[in-house]
């Protein structure tokens, strides 16, 4: 069974951040104490209490005028072959769980007993895992597995007004992603899908994925990566599907 996937059409995202708050609401996650850093974005990164945050990047043309304002709702990609789990399995194969039906990657409470959080975090090509400082339990997006198993969409998907966030059977999402890519390329010739084969959160980027976020797509050449991550990236080939 091919499980579930998200398709995230970034060409439609307005950064209303309904998804960011809906995630907090469903998961009853507390707020972080934040400061304005000279941007509309906050929190600036995912954390033990923020599974999803919307990044905002201003892109200028050669005359200094706005060419695009790129929005990137960041979350766990629920990899089809999750390096976090591969890493954790060496210590306890029940700490990180891959749900058979959906493919969701779940950090269980047993992650608190894994010896090295940094190893898990660095295994992730998307820099997603975080750890609760007190309980030592590792955290990230759960795909709202509880909702999905009950026929509901993940909270972030339900809250999305524009059709940016989509969720469904993997085949359907892949087909939708391909269809939208073809449509979008008329307006944005550089549009690409990010890591569609290897993850269950397929982003459609209108421009170079790296202009959205440094960890938008897996990158074999990024300096300072652990071997495991580099291997992972090689395993899944190119960073993104090039245009047809």
């Amino acid at each position: 069974m091919s499980g579930k996937s998200f398709f995230v059409d970034l060409t439609k995202c307005t950064a209303c951040r309904g998804c960011q708050i809906a995630c907090k609401q469903w998961n009853k996650l507390p707020a972080e104490e934040t400061r304005n850093h000279g941007s509309h974005q906050n929190p600036m990164d995912v954390s033990a209490i923020t599974y999803k945050t919307v990044h905002m990047k201003e892109v200028a043309d050669d005359k200094g005028f706005m060419a695009a304002w790129l929005f990137f709702p960041e979350q766990c990609r629920h990899c089809t072959e999750p390096p976090c789990k591969m890493t954790a399995d060496a210590y306890d194969d029940k700490a990180i769980y891959q749900d058979e039906a959906t493919g969701a990657i779940i950090f269980t409470e047993k992650t608190k007993d894994l010896p090295d959080f940094d190893e898990i975090r660095e295994a992730c090509p998307y820099n997603i895992p975080r750890q609760n400082a007190e309980t030592k339990v590792m955290t990230k997006c759960t795909m709202c597995l509880d909702r999905v198993q009950n026929g509901l969409k993940p909270a972030c998907v339900q809250s999305c007004p524009t059709g940016t966030m989509n969720f469904g059977d993997r085949d359907e999402m892949l087909a939708l992603a391909e269809k939208r890519l073809a449509e979008v390329q008329k307006k944005y010739p550089d549009a690409v899908l990010g890591d569609a084969e290897s993850t269950r959160v397929i982003y459609l980027y209108q421009a170079d994925p790296k202009s959205y976020h440094p960890y938008s797509v897996a990158d074999a050449t990024m300096p300072g990566l652990m071997n495991r991550k580099a291997m992972f990236a090689k395993l899944f080939g190119s960073k993104s599907r090039s245009k047809a």
């Binding site: 029940k94 269980t108 759960t142 709202c144 597995l145 509880d146 198993q149 026929g151």
Partner: peptide, 21 residues
């Protein structure tokens, strides 16, 4: 179907984290 979910994880001998959701 909530009960099904609980059984699925319960059977594997661990809980979801975080457990609140």
């Amino acid at each position: 179907a909530a009960a099904t979910a609980v059984t699925a994880f319960g059977g594997l001998g661990f809980d979801l984290a975080p457990t609140k959701a």
